[in-house]
């Protein structure tokens, strides 16, 4: 359980440091079960910070969105840190980015939050539709979510609202942090990501039918890419014109190419925060692709992303004894 008072105190302390530019955390959203990313520039901004099981958003995207203006001659770049509130998966995203040299460890101050899993916004909005005011949710010790809507209190078993990715999460505690709020969660036995198994049991034709149906709907807004903390390439291959890897036309062929490309480029990099799937406006089950690749990469190359900042990137390294049973 994360005490909001403690969180606010830590954010206040961090943002007051001379070497910290601002701290990114969560604040209450404008309606329903929405949360917003919050930015604290001084101690007084920290008041609106909070944490609850609704805080699903992976904030590790933001340090890389920081816009750096070109410097004038003689001007020196400002070397100030950015504070971020991180859960287990968010910290793994930061580790992965540091590993890829997208960020330096010194660039960030990590405020770790031991995570008990977050609520799937789609599931809870379906359960309690038409909430025009913000509703907070708390977790009690009986594995239930407690919320109050217009005077009535509701208790819902955790399992019904928990994000699918969280059910199979192996690292609820931040792996990299400067300050940890509260006590680390006990290790628990993660479930298998069932949706991948279900798909694997289908025949090859059934699988294509499934994906065809989803890819046809893709509107190529690239929200999956923008929401992903690890899609931070300066120029995405999808935006390149010369060579043009994926045409701009929106049809099954190009949509498939884009989705394969996205999944492949996250091989050995995806840390399963589920941000892409949450962002997708047309309900494409992107995490099934990511989780499948994660599983295969682990089986074939014994590799897990986002654990060690010194690790070599999966597709930029090799072992002479990598499996090659598919090669003749």
């Amino acid at each position: 359980m994360v005490e909001n008072k403690e969180l606010i105190r830590v954010v206040e302390e961090t943002v007051s440091r001379d070497d910290v530019k601002y701290v990114i955390g969560y604040k209450r959203g404008t309606y329903g079960f929405q949360i917003k990313p919050a930015f604290a520039y001084s101690a007084k901004d920290a008041k609106e910070f909070f944490y609850s099981p609704l805080c699903a958003k992976n904030l590790a995207t933001y340090p890389l969105l920081e816009e750096k203006l070109p410097l004038r001659r003689g001007e020196e770049a400002e070397h100030k840190k950015i504070g971020i509130v991180v859960k287990g998966c968010d910290s793994r995203a930061i580790i992965q980015i540091i590993q890829e040299k997208g960020l330096e460890r010194e660039d960030v101050v990590l405020i770790g939050i031991p995570c008990k899993g977050v609520i799937d916004p789609k599931k809870i909005a379906k359960r309690f539709p038409k909430q025009s005011k913000f509703v907070d949710v708390e977790e009690n010790s009986n594995d239930e979510y407690v919320l109050e809507i217009s005077g009535t209190s509701h208790k819902i078993p955790k399992d019904e609202l928990l994000s699918d990715v969280c059910k199979s999460c192996e690292y609820p505690n931040p792996l990299l942090y400067d300050i940890l709020i509260g006590e680390a969660e006990e290790e628990f036995q993660p479930e298998h990501f069932n949706r991948v198994d279900e798909l694997e049991e289908k025949t090859i034709e059934e699988r294509w039918e499934y994906w065809e149906k989803h890819f046809q709907n893709c509107i190529r807004c690239y929200a999956c890419r923008e929401a992903c903390p690890l899609c931070y390439c300066k120029t995405c291959m999808a935006d390149l014109l010369e060579p043009q890897w994926v045409r701009r036309s929106v049809n099954l062929s190009e949509n498939t190419a884009w989705n394969v490309m996205r999944a492949f480029h996250l091989a050995g990099r995806c840390i399963s925060c589920g941000e892409c799937e949450r962002a997708c406006p047309v309900n494409i089950p992107l995490m099934e692709l990511n989780k499948f690749v994660e599983k295969e990469v682990k089986e074939m190359f014994d590799y897990t992303a986002g654990l060690d900042t010194e690790e070599k990137p999966l597709l930029g390294s090799f072992r002479p004894d990598d499996p090659e049973d598919f090669i003749s």
Partner: peptide
């Protein structure tokens, strides 16, 4: 704009947004 991640959802799902790009394929 601080929290905007630059995805195109708001514009693609807007009934009045009408910007387009032309491409030779």
């Amino acid at each position: 704009a601080r929290s905007c991640i630059g995805c195109g959802i708001c514009t693609y799902l807007c009934p009045t947004c009408h910007c387009f790009d032309m491409q030779d394929e």
